[in-house]
Amino acid sequence: MNALAAIGEALVLIGTFFYFLSALGLIRMPDVYNRMQTSTKSATLGSLGVMVGVGIWALGTDFGSAAWLTKSIVIAVFLLLTNPISAHALIRAAYKSGIPLWEGSVVDKYREHLEAKDKGEVEEAPAEEGDEE
């Protein structure tokens, strides 16, 4: 047991704690959007902590080498690049399929934006019909 192994173990522990929080958030939050917030995000820090933690932990053992750390960092970077895209795709799909926001939600600027856009298109269409008549 040395300092590097101890730091790695602490990081893995923190990571698993955030995994636990994201699972708890999945149960506690009221609607799909807030569940996305807690579950996908805490999982990011959880995975980061576990991966980088494993890399540092391995440095402190007798079989470890620097390759452990660099590889786990590359994995973490690719995770950081891809995770938000799937989160964005999921939440956008949820909104487009018409899942309502929780009743306690305070504001929905996206609906206003979509309605303004629709209205712009709808107003143009009847005007054209009027011209034809």
Binding site: L21, K41, V106, H113
Partner: peptide, 26 residues
Amino acid sequence: AMIMANLDVAYRVLHPKRPINPGIVE
């Protein structure tokens, strides 16, 4: 920034009253 925000969300998940105030902003 990510760690601070994570702790903030962790607080909201663990707090018994669930102090969230969600919405979609522009």
